[in-house]
Design a protein around this nucleic acid. Structure first.
Lengths: 335, 335
DNA sequence: GTGAAAGCGCTAACAA
DNA sequence: TTGTTAGCGCTTTCAC
């Protein structure tokens, strides 16, 4: 900046003014300085501006796994909304490891980011609360906020699970399997709870009517783990007539596993996914699933985060409803 | 930091030493300071450290579209490699818009990031060269480096296209269609060139034997655009017996469009994708495609970028080979 | 082993 | 309208 000032024959603060409050600079001085900036190829130093107290344009996004298309699309929603405010997204995957999550939060806080949008890997919000108290706003995604000092964007997965249950019950199913994960992923458990609720409401005992499967989230890749896990469904006696999967990726693996075991979908067994990823409608058979407004979730989270900087901000939760998408992987049970 | 110093009864520089060069501090002083840091909840200020000349831990990743699973996985490769070096990834999608790309590069340079890994949306490298000259290292992904001052990680797509062509020719195909895009995406064009080379080598005239289709990359979503574009293949006379798509997502749409038109794959027409995304093997029919070491591409790019900081760094290009994966969407033409 | 001091590049209040 | 000045929080000599 000093160099530009010297070359343009003005003081450093005039250069600063041209950059930050151009309207207070005389037009010809401004033109001269701007020309010099271009000639020299001068680029402003963000860290120095931050040091002076300006807000960072960077927002941290801490998610479970960017390679999961659900999170990738969510992140696009975050990015697009933030871009409208001139902000950038620092994307971090935790792979469900809370140690890694803690590291990442530490790094982000040191960078003095504008805020953090997080899909937490554990249930304990204390680290997030402290971070928020120290001045880095936090928005939870896909997790109940658990404290009035945080904002959150959530989907009513319980209702999603209920929709699936009601759909299958309506088709005449009475024996179910739920392919969940070994992790305490809140959303995934809510889906199971909703399913159980639907069974109970139909007069069934979930302990009897629902076979509970858990696959490790990784490694190996979920799609392979799911393919393996369906073995248990295939050999269960009596065998469930409907398999509800925690998400579409698991359903993809399940379809594969069922095919390998010689079971036809939906004739021998119905399969349901969750997320409605882009490939769901093109699988064989097209997958019945539950769609979430994934991209909008991201935008909403970014909205909340940006709002944290506003004077009258109040912490709040935005709740989205899921929607059942019926395709051909579900049908009435045979026999 | 001053606050910690006061509370611990030492000077600010001792606190700094505890943080940056703990070994030169007396053990008991160090313990006392560390305890105070924890009590107070002190967090180091990254921007201030950067201002002092330390390198930023942030690397920019500028890609075409994070919602495309190919880039999402690529980005995971980048992230994982950088994490090993304690770095973070600032992920930006350009949606093929060079205006947006320019904006993003400007923002990243202002943030004084450690470097930028970019999958460029245009062919002109001057902006990147200038950035590199000003001190922000640049690594190109999926794009020839075009200048010895840049590093690049590339895949031999020409060879990929050739593999596809040879496979289809070997099955007996003589009339082809290539579903490309309206953009000057270098990799996508290379694939077509490879395909044309194979045809030429087999004694065919590409101008005659190859129907060239172009779909706009967006909007609408590529998968829908591709579904629409296959109309032209269906109604072509004589109709091509093999459809080669620029990537798996386009192939997904093409399968859909062909099904809607009443054509069977592979009996009536063979279809080939590119990328080998996770769903490719589970489509109906399982998709013949070309796999790239996507995750490794990301790691290799991060490797090169980190190496830029080393004293003896020489700019270079890392080239990966693609591999044909034959599944059931290709077969000998009927009749 | 510890502290004092200079300065990284910038912004904003104030003086000229 | 432009320039002078005082830091923002930190690292790093260099005395002590």
């Amino acid at each position: 900046m000093r160099e530009v000032a010297r070359a343009a024959g003005v003081s450093a603060s005039t250069v600063a003014n041209v950059l930050s409050r151009p309207w207070i600079v005389a037009p010809d001085t401004r033109d001269r300085v701007e020309q010099t900036i271009r000639d020299i190829g001068y680029v402003r130093n963000g860290p120095a501006r931050q040091l002076r107290g300006l807000p960072s344009p960077i927002v941290g996004s801490v998610i479970l796994d960017l390679a999961n298309p659900f999170y990738a699309e969510l992140n696009r929603g975050i990015e697009d909304r933030l871009a409208e405010a001139g902000c950038l997204v620092l994307t971090c995957s935790t792979d469900h490891q809370s140690v890694r999550e803690k590291q990442l939060l530490g790094l982000l806080e040191e960078q003095a980011v504008r805020g953090v949008i997080i899909s937490p890997s554990g249930a304990d919000p204390t680290a997030l609360l402290e971070m928020s108290r120290r001045g880095t706003p936090v928005v939870l995604i896909d997790h109940p906020r658990g404290h009035p000092d945080l904002c959150a964007v959530t989907v009513d997965h319980r209702s999603g699970g209920r929709l699936v249950g009601e759909h299958l019950l309506g088709l005449g199913h009475r024996r179910f399997a739920y392919l969940g994960s070994t992790l305490v992923a809140d959303g995934v458990n809510q889906r199971r709870e909703g399913l159980r609720e639907a069974l109970t409401a139909a007069g069934l005992d979930p302990e009897q009517a629902l076979l509970d499967l858990r696959v490790p989230m990784q490694p190996p890749p979920l799609v392979d783990a799911a393919a393996g896990a369906v073995e248990q469904v295939v050999h269960a006696d009596p065998r469930p007539t409907a398999l509800v999967c925690l998400n579409d990726t698991a359903a993809l693996g399940a379809l594969h596993g069922l095919e390998a075991a010689g079971l036809r979908v939906p004739e021998d067994i119905s399969v349901v996914g969750y997320d409605d990823l882009s490939f769901a409608s093109r699988l064989a058979p097209p997958l019945t699933t539950v769609s979430q407004p994934t991209y909008q979730l991201g935008r909403a989270a970014a909205d909340l985060l940006l709002d944290e900087a506003e004077p009258g901000h109040t912490h709040r939760e935005t709740l989205f409803p899921p929607a059942l998408v019926v395709r051909s992987s579900t049908a009435a049970p045979s026999g």
